[in-house]
Amino acid sequence: MMDVAKRRQLSRIKTLLSVIFLLLLLWGSGYRTQVSFQDLFSGIPNIFSALADMLPPDWGYFDYVTGPMLETIRIAILGTTFGGILSIPIILLSSRNVTRSPFLFYPARFILNLIRTIPELLLAALFVPIFGIGPVAGICAITVFSLGIIAKLAYEAVEAIDPGPLEAMTAVGANKIQWVFFGVVPQVAAHFMSYFLYAFEINVRAAVILGYVGAGGIGIILNNMLASFQYNRVITIILYTLIVVAVIEFISNKIREKLL
């Protein structure tokens, strides 16, 4: 009886401490960033006037931005494809049940985590001086970015596969390539495709803003329109993006449902 009461008291203290910590964190953050709700309330009219400038959307602009929009989609397609291809060796290296040696899978995972921490806009900004202003830098940035996403998700799928076929392959004397090709690939191919499509959805959205640093796509125009306060064109671009992303997500979701 005593034990239960004590434990309950302890857990109550723990909850209380967590709440205090959270409140301190929030207060400190607010203090550091000088949050002022007065600014927000006095600024709300500005938001509405910006929103009012957006209406009505410049419908004629749709035609003009179709080219850059297709370029954005192309950046996402090629970047995701290259990233998907490059991720295959990293997936195999990071999987405990394929590589077997901790000297291989820990470094591979470390590199993977490192890649995933770098924001894609920063990657794009690093590729622009190499490939010049244009979509190639964007493709390279998306390649590295999707490599991180796909590899992270897929290696976890590889580690969860059924070991039976693998043991059977070993028992009949398959070499490592045959072992991977006939034992691992059939079990994870559907997962891999699903993650590939998921990464593609994220990448379409990411590719929209890459133009900010000159890495091609619709972002360059978006940036120019924002800088010159042509908000009715900004909203056209945003609506266009919304439609494209919604269509791509719908198709990709349908395919993924069929895959898994």
Partner: peptide, 14 residues
């Protein structure tokens, strides 16, 4: 959009 409302700075980001 929020920069238009509250000016440059971290609050717009938040």
């Amino acid at each position: 959009l929020f920069i238009a409302a509250v000016g440059l700075g971290p609050f717009a980001g938040i």
